[in-house]
Structure formats: C-alpha cells, structure tokens
Amino acid sequence: MRTLQHRHFASLIAVATLTLAAGCHKKAVPPPPPPPPAATSPAPTASITVTPDTISPGGGAVLAWKTSDATDISIDGVGTVNAYGTQNVQPTESTTYHLVARGPGGSTDATARLTVNAAAPPQSTGETIDEQMFEQNVKPAFFDYDSYDIRPDAQTILAQDASFLAAHPTLKVVVGGYCDDRGSAEYNLALGENRANAAKQALVNGGIAPDRIRTVSYGKEKQFCSQANEQCWQLNRRAGFSLDR
C-alpha cells in the first residue's frame, strides 16, 4: 500500500511542477497557432490602357493591361484574361473597357475608354467618290523653286483639301511629290519626298489622321507639261493627290 501512495505522490508533484513551470515560464511552451488574420495578403493592382484612344469606324486599337496579386481577371466585353497582356479590338462604337481583378487580398478594377468617331452622314450621291469629284475637290499645292515650304496659297488649298477629306472620312489618299524637269534626277526624288511630306503634314495639322495619307515621290520622273518656261515649271512643282485604293 505504501508504494502506491509514493507513486501517486510523485506524479502529483510532477504535475504540480509542470503546472508551476508552465505558469512561471510561459516561453517554454509553444503558443497555440494564431487565428488567420483579417488582411495580410497584398491587395491586387490593375491598370488598363487602349491605344490609340480615338479611332474612325473600321479602325482598330490595342488594349493593354497588367495586374498583380490577382487570380481572377476579366474585362467586360472581352472575357476572362491573363494577369497581363494585350488584345486587338475593333468596336463599331465607343466602348469603355472595364477590367476587374480579384485575388486573395481583395479585388480592384480599372477602365479605359475607346472613342469611335461618328461616321459622316452619307452623301446624297452614295458612299463612293469618283475620280472626277475627287480631283475637283482635292487640288494640288504648288511650291517655289527648290523649296518644300508651304506657301500661303498652298496653305489655303491644303486647308480646303483637308475639309473635303474630313467630310469623307473613309477616303484614303496618296500624295505625290513632283519637281520641274531642270536639275538632277536623284536630288529631285529626294526633294519630291520632302514636298509630299510637307503636304501630308499640312493635312495632318488640319485634322486628318496620318494613316489615311500615303506619300510617294516622283521627282522629275512624271511631268504635267513639257514647255521650257516658268509657267510649266511651276505647274510641275507640286504635291498632288490621288485616291489610294
């Protein structure tokens, strides 16, 4: 009977020591795991852009986005997408691209707006423009000798040309740069290039999108007249327009 008492007593002391120890030295016992924190995952970030941000009907743009710390990303009107990427879009009317990015840290969103210019009202003669009407309305601009500066008279003509092109936004044009037949073939090709680009720049400044205008230099290779006098030479020093099919 006595050994049982001893053992019992020994284990009691052991428990008491342990309990005391636990009570005095909290460090010795690993603490219980803490409950999950309300917000220690990083919040997702998102950004989205569309380039260009304005197009004509039928034109295209590029949507570009990037996100971080998101597992579920979607763009309205496009669908579920990867964390970052680009996409070509060709909407027929102005659209707001709304991106939503969700992740363990929460969710966020971003938007980009693409404006589609309203098409001009159709002409009474129909959508197609014939060569003759084009030539009557989109006239060449003329240059001084060895120059590619836009003179005041040329500026007036180019402004009128720009108005016509603005009113017919589906038209694309080729600007040819031309020189009179004096002077050197190679130099004149380069000068014709400068003239074509000066005229293009004047149209762009007048509001026409650059992707509607293509330039070609003809140098002195194409002549509009052949007399050896200033009147003919002036006629040849031009930036001339034609429909780009």
Binding site: E186, A190, A196
Partner: peptide, 9 residues
C-alpha cells in the same frame, strides 16, 4: 544610300 524613314531623306 538615301532613306526617308520619317519623310525627310
């Protein structure tokens, strides 16, 4: 050679 990448040879 001469090239006019941006419109100016």
């Amino acid at each position: 050679f001469s090239a006019a990448r941006s419109g100016d040879p």
